[in-house]
Every structure is written in structure tokens, then in C-alpha cells.
Write a protein that binds this DNA or RNA. Structure first.
Lengths: 180, 180
DNA sequence: TCGATATACTATCGATCCGATATATATCAA
DNA sequence: TTGATATATATCGGATCGATAGTATATCGA
């Protein structure tokens, strides 16, 4: 499931511009997939070239021309095929946060606490975003619902774990000494 | 926290070859960071060139020569500095699994069930690995303990969520119709 | 004893991808 | 009027990664 395939998948639910796709990646998708313009535009160009999507340029007053992409029948076929083929889709986590935490012994407690706090806030804002989407989108398909629920479950578990650890840590370090 | 920094960090706990580092990435680190030889060897070469590590080539009977890397004082300094600097370490998930599940409506229930099953097994084996490590490593530092605990928590939450969904799904699809 | 497979160790290439950046305009707030 | 912010395009250089290759030993089953 590379970016090209994923873009194709999103386009099955309706036409979109590159900009629109980016919005999607910043929203519902942000908790399990990231993609910037540097990936999206080349992907769309490739898809257009191989006939998976059509591109219609629409001139607009004052604004730069839009390029609206629509999936073709060939594109839909190809998308379904790539869903069926590949047996073992990977699930990768690349966390600089955990990498840093692994070396917590090299940091002072205040910094560690800040790191944890920062992560907690990030988790909270992602959860808020997921909730907003749920409230808005009333007729959610089973797939998107599963993925959103997965995100919520994992984020809540992470939040709880980090909170508990942080509380313990903050207690230990304040009772023992006074920092500069 | 790029691969170079991370390799440097691992080397703070003792000398290692590129092969050793790969083993580390396949073990404790696998649930939050991945790195292959294509990243590790160039990283080590860079680190050696900039004086962060030294490289000692040791000829061995029958086997190819080992290159043992050791962190220098400059390297240790640099590592601590990079831990202190950067404010916002990211935590990214890139999941082909969730990307596919998002489009579950395009797949037949059997395939979805297989996908979920496969993921469950993968989670189970990762959990087993983490447990084995805990059992082996008796004096675990706070950092590694936090990271391992984080992994266990998240993996267990994911397992529970997927199991519950799968059970429900398998029930619905078998009672309703007979597949070809 | 032959071939397969695993372990130990090195290394690189091509493809992919991604962050940062540039360009343009319109609107909204200070 | 200055400067954010939103809409929309696009690309480049660099990071990274998966796959692959090479070399030697040891074990294990047929």
C-alpha cells in the first residue's frame, strides 16, 4: 500500500485536488499515515500518466488553476486488485519520542517531564480531532469506523500509560531534591 | 533523532558491529523503530568519518573481518547534546494494515478476517519477544523499561480491539450467508 | 554426501519518499 | 499596512529503506 494506491483509494469516494488529498491526510488519516505535497503531487502525476485517474484543469478567478482528479474504471480495477493481492501489510511505528525516552537516564527529570507533557498534549489534540470527525460524519462505513476506533483505543491507552508514569516520576523527583 | 544519533545512543552502552546493531533493531527496538543494513552501515561510516566513533577491524579465521565500533568522548558529548536540543520529537505511525482496513468495504469478509488474524499473530509474537527480553534483562534502566512498557500496553490494547471486532465480524458474516 | 538452511558479517544500489521551499492571490484581523 | 492564514500549484535534495549480493562455517535431514 504505497501512496499512489492510497490516493487512488481516497479518490474512489469522489473527485479531489492534490490540496484536498493533503487535507485528508492531515485529518482522518493523520494517526496512521502521513503524506506531504512532495509525495502527493508526484503520485497524482504518475496515476494520471498511467490512466488510473483523469485530470481536469479548471481556471479560477484570482486563484491558481485547480487540477481536479477523478478515478477511472481502470483505476478502480487496479485499486481493488492491489487490495486483494499483497498478503502481509506492515504496520510500522517510527517514534523519536520513544527513542529519546529510551535514553531517559541521560536527561534531567525536568526535560523528561516536558517531553511526556508534550506528547500528552499531542495525543489529546489528535483525540479531539477524531471526535470532531465522528460527530460530523454521521454515516460512517465499517472500514473508516474500525480505523478511527483503533486510533482512539491506542491513543487512550498511550495517554493513560504516559500519565501514570509521569505522575509517578514527578512525585519522586520533587520530594527528593530542589532543582535549580 | 535520526538513525545516526540512535546508533550513537546504542553505542553508549558498549562496542558493537553493524550486525550487532541490526540485532538490536530487530529485538527491543522493533516495536518503535526499524532500521536495515542500508541505513546502519552508511550511518556508521558517517559517524566514523566525523570522529564520533572509532572503527577497529578485527580479522577472524574463516569469517569475514569484523568492524568493531566504539563511541568516542566527542560522540558521547554530541549524543547528549542532541538529546537536549530538539524540542518536539515526532511519533509517526505508517500502517498499511489500517490503510487497507479503511477500505474494508472493497474486500470480501473472508479476506478481512484473514487480515485481522494475521495482525493478531504478529502482535502476539512481538509481545512474546518483549516478555522474553524482560525475563533475560534483570537490571533494566528506567528508560528502556518505560519504552518496553509502552510497547506492551499499546500492543495489548490493539490486540483486544482487533479481537473484539473480528469476533463480531465473523459472527455476522457466518450467520447471514454462505460464501462461495 | 549432497543440498538446504541458518548464523555471522560485510556492503551497495535504485526507488521511494518527505521536508522544506517557492510562487501567487485573496481575505481577515490587528 | 502589515502580516497571518487559506487556497492551490510544484520541485529539489537528501534521507532512508528494501532487496540483493558476497563469503565462510556449521548443522541437519534425506
Amino acid at each position: 500500500m504505497d501512496i499512489k494506491t492510497l490516493c487512488l483509494g481516497i479518490l474512489t469516494s469522489g473527485e479531489a485536488t492534490g490540496y484536498d488529498l493533503k487535507k485528508r491526510f492531515e485529518g482522518t488519516f493523520s494517526h496512521f499515515y502521513t503524506a506531504g505535497y512532495g509525495s502527493i503531487y508526484p503520485a497524482l502525476a504518475d496515476l494520471a500518466e498511467s490512466g488510473m485517474v483523469t485530470c481536469t484543469e479548471v481556471a479560477e478567478q484570482g486563484k491558481p488553476a485547480k487540477k481536479i482528479y477523478r478515478i477511472t474504471e481502470k483505476g478502480t480495477e487496479s485499486f481493488k486488485k492491489s487490495l486483494g493481492g499483497n498478503e502481509c501489510p506492515c504496520h510500522k511505528v517510527k517514534s523519536e519520542f520513544l527513542a529519546m525516552m529510551y535514553f531517559a537516564q541521560f536527561m534531567d527529570p525536568k526535560q523528561v517531564s516536558g517531553l511526556l507533557q508534550h506528547r500528552l498534549e499531542h495525543i489529546e489534540s489528535t483525540l479531539d480531532m477524531l471526535e470532531t470527525i465522528t460527530a460530523t460524519d454521521s454515516d460512517e462505513q465499517t472500514g473508516p469506523a474500525f480505523v478511527r476506533g483503533f486510533g482512539e483505543t491506542i491513543l487512550k491507552a498511550a495517554h493513560e500509560y504516559i500519565s501514570a508514569y509521569k505522575a509517578e516520576q514527578d512525585n519522586t523527583s520533587t520530594s527528593g531534591h530542589q532543582a535549580a
